[in-house]
Simulated scan of single mutants.
Amino acid sequence: MQFEHLKILDIVLVKPTIHGDDRGYFLETFRQDLFEDFIGKKVGFIQDNESKSNKGVLRGLHYQIPPYEQAKLVRVIKGSVLDVVVDIRKSSPTFGNSVAVELSDKNKHQLFIPKGFAHGFVVLSNEAIFAYKVDNVYRPEFEKGIIFNDKTLNIDWVLPKHELKLSDKDRELQEFKEL
């Protein structure tokens, strides 16, 4: 298992070691000891979630406010997504910066997103099964979000705008400047 800091140093790309032969493959999707050694702190994941979405579905950019902020470890079981993370920590030198990474069933990469970041993804394949660990429970009354096409953030979601499919809730999210 390899770990790599991205341009926002607190965001970590996890590249599992894949052991494969003509029968198939095996990989460890999570090793708490190695993971915590790399990030230098404990993360107590308490729940695993999974979603299935069709091509063009865009979910996000979501986050929860204290005391229900969430750290996440995300991966794709089937298909391919563009995963996007935005630093919303006002005291951070990378406040407002974003990172975009393709996660797929082929590369098997994972992304660690600590507390203090907005997160979203768009499905690039015909369908995708997306899985993630979280370290805090979901509380809808503490959920917030940033509109996907925010002009300040200027995120390239790769797919043309007319192909994007959003929930009504995600179409009504606030702009970044309203944080």
Rank of each mutant, 00 (worst) to 15 (best):
Lys42Asn: 04
Gln47Cys: 05
Lys78Arg: 14
Val43Ala: 06
Gly79Glu: 06
Ser91Ala: 11
Val74Trp: 06
Lys115Pro: 00
Glu143Leu: 04
Tyr138Arg: 07
Lys115Arg: 15
Asp48Met: 06
Ile155Val: 15
Glu143Phe: 05
Pro67Gly: 06
Lys55Asp: 00
Ser53Asp: 05
His119Glu: 05
Gly79Phe: 07
Gly116Gln: 05
Lys52Cys: 11
Tyr25Trp: 12
Pro114Leu: 10
Asp33Ser: 09
Gly40Thr: 06
Glu28Thr: 14
Phe121Tyr: 15
Val76Thr: 15
Val43Lys: 00
Tyr132Lys: 03
His62Thr: 13
Gly116Asn: 01
Val81Glu: 04
Asp156Pro: 01
Asp156Asn: 15
Leu34Lys: 11
Gly24Leu: 08
Thr94Glu: 04
Gln110Trp: 11
Val86Leu: 09
Gly24Val: 13
Arg31His: 04
Leu73Met: 13
Asn107Phe: 08
Leu27His: 11
Gly40His: 07
Lys108Thr: 11
Phe112Tyr: 15
Asp150Arg: 04
Val74Asp: 04
Val74Thr: 12
Gln32Ala: 10
Asp105Leu: 06
Lys42Trp: 00
Val84Asp: 05
Lys106Pro: 00
Val158Arg: 14
Ser53Met: 06
Ile65Pro: 02
Asp33Pro: 01
Val76Ala: 11
Ile146Met: 08
Phe30Gln: 00
Gln32Thr: 14
Phe117Ile: 08
Lys133Trp: 10
Phe112Trp: 07
Pro67Met: 12
Ala118Ser: 12
Lys52Ala: 09
Gly79Val: 14
Phe30Ala: 01
Ala71Thr: 09
Ile65Met: 14
Gly120Tyr: 07
Asn54His: 08
Pro67Glu: 10
Thr152Cys: 02
Arg139Tyr: 08
Asp87Ala: 08
Tyr138Phe: 15
Glu163Tyr: 03
Val57Glu: 03
Gly56His: 06
Lys78Trp: 03
Asp22Lys: 03
Gln70Lys: 12
Glu163Leu: 13
Phe26His: 00
Val86Met: 09
Gly145Val: 05
Ser104Met: 09
Glu36Trp: 03
Val81Trp: 03
Lys106Tyr: 11
Ala71Met: 12
Pro67Trp: 11
Phe38Glu: 03
Ile113Thr: 02
Glu50Asn: 05
Asn149Tyr: 10
Tyr132Leu: 04
Ile146Trp: 08
Glu28Pro: 00
His109Asp: 07
Leu153Met: 04
Leu34Cys: 01
Leu111Cys: 10
Glu50Ser: 14
Val74Asn: 12
Val85Phe: 12
Glu141Tyr: 08
Ala71Pro: 02
Tyr132Asp: 02
Phe26Tyr: 14
Lys115Tyr: 03
Val86Pro: 00
Ala118Leu: 12
Gly116Tyr: 05
Lys41Asp: 07
Val122Gly: 01
Trp157Lys: 04
Leu73His: 03
Asn154Leu: 05
Arg59Thr: 09
Tyr25Ala: 10
Phe26Trp: 10
Val76Pro: 06
Thr29Ile: 15
Asp156Phe: 03
Leu58Phe: 10
Ile77Leu: 15
Glu127Met: 08
Asp87Phe: 13
Lys161Ile: 10
Arg139Leu: 11
Glu69Trp: 06
Glu50Gly: 01
Leu73Phe: 14
Phe38Thr: 03
Gln32Glu: 14
